[in-house]
Amino acid sequence: MKKVIKKKNRGLTKSGPLLLIALPGIIYLFINNYIPMFGVFLAFKDYSYVKGIFGSDWNGLNNFKYLFKQDAFLIIRNTLLYNFTFIILGTIFAIIVAILMCELGEKFRVKIFQSSLLLPNLLSWVVIGFIGYAFLNADTGFINNTLIKLMGSGKEVAWYTTPKYWPFILTIVYLWKNIGYSSIIYMASISGIDKSIFEAAKIDGAKKLEQIKHITIPMLKPTIIILTLMAVGRIFYSDFGLFYQVPMNSGALYKTTQTIDTYVYHGLMELQDIGMSAAAALYQSVVGFVLVITANAVVRKVDNDNALF
């Protein structure tokens, strides 16, 4: 009987009208994203202004060479480690904040908390770099000047020349800037959960923590999966501002602060080579692509409904 109904429904859903609804979006993406993809040719060209994109001479893989020079391993390691840390910690913190917000239920406090947590996201990295400097500066910085003196331990730290602190500093800054933003996504998902489920659980005598564990988190699973998959696609990218502005581009910190994006920027700042920048972007994309296809295939096996595609 069930089968019959399903069949009937499939009959009711015609793909044509649905496709029509999606059409404006499809057209936009086609124009904005697909047409310009001919630009990837640049990665294999020795660009000349006179000859243009198509006319320039082919350059083989020469534009890619610099990406694999010298510190390549270190840079890739940094990029990956930071991204993993950000994905894991970012998700955990965002979920905690979202759950707490939703539990408050009361309008006024939620308003205050949420607006405040969102504020850092509105600041540009340049300004955040300044704030970081205000705290960490060796001579007049807030930490060396006030906090350390207050605590009486007396040992000033040369923050901008000591690489070992930076994985922590950058992670903190990242979380500070992004938690408010990403917790909104989870808040929306929690808002969408059918309230009757919670009511039923309450009647069954489930405590708050149990409700969270057995209802909220499982209901968030699809969102978590999808956000993580998308993050995996960007795993070879890094937020340029975070890694460039916040450490004030201090050379002494490169060991722990340099990522693919800052490396490319430094290398090409003087050369301004169009082909080489295109090569870097393509390299990041291809790695992300391979990883995300793999990850998606795994998700599809385990939990078909939540796969990206």
Binding site: N62, Y66, K69, Q70, H266, G267, M269, E270, L271, M276
Partner: peptide, 8 residues
């Protein structure tokens, strides 16, 4: 170019 970007 390759050497340049690495050296910089």
């Amino acid at each position: 170019k390759t050497e340049y970007s690495a050296v910089i």
